[in-house]
Amino acid sequence: MNIVVVVRQVPDLIEPLEIAESGTSLDFDEVSFLVNETDDHALEQALLLKEAGGGTVTVVALDCGEVDDTLYTAAAKGADKIVKIPVEDELRPPAPPAAAALFAEAVKGLQADLVLVGSSAHDELEGMLAPLLALKLQLPYVGVIRGVRAGDGSVTAFKEFPGAVMAKMNVKLPAVLGILAADQPPRYVPVSRIKAATKSTEFEEVEVAAAAAPGVTVQRMYHPAAGERAEMLEGSEEEVAAKIAEILVEKGILK
């Protein structure tokens, strides 16, 4: 089974995000990127499927947002092939529809039996990349998957619904699945293996025509001001803690 995993980089939220001078985007010079968590799960699911039933794992990524480290890590974990798609701006990831078009073009040439994509990303909570990609590839799609088992010409996928309901589904291949979580949490790969992969891995580059300009433009990007009903507590940790305690007593929650 040829499994293709689509991997995206997202801004690391450990540092406060800054707005660029233009006022219409993040200040990408100040952003550090890391792999999108659900994409990491998609990769893990692909590796587990390969280990259980054989096949190959190809990782596809856009060449932006410090993606190389993520790709070397994927290679160290056991991905067989890495495909990188050059983009116009190496710092700024394209919007989901454009990204979907780029990924679709690249995936078309890979004879994929199964395409795994993270269900959503924290810079794309609507989770439209995976379905858009399925649409462009004209393949069946299910999202919010928590675990996949390989079958003959199909896979069994476990989908989670709200209200503690799970569904076990049979998905005919080829197909696209949006992964929320793999059967196991993503594995740890030691630094020495990543180092070795950095030396031995060669990325395959696939030139893909840029998608048409999107019909949506950002007019202004900003940090929302504190609402009128919110009271911001200022001061040192101790002072803030004291104020919180005071409020809790006032509201009768603490006595």
């Binding site: 450990i14 540092e15 890391l34 594995r187 740890y188 790969v189 020495s192």
Partner: peptide
Amino acid sequence: LIDQGEIDEGLQDALMNVQRYGNSFGQS
């Protein structure tokens, strides 16, 4: 065990934090 990735979740978090942020707390 590390080479085989056979590690405890807490330890994995700490190591990935050290790798990414230079401290085991996962702080900036």
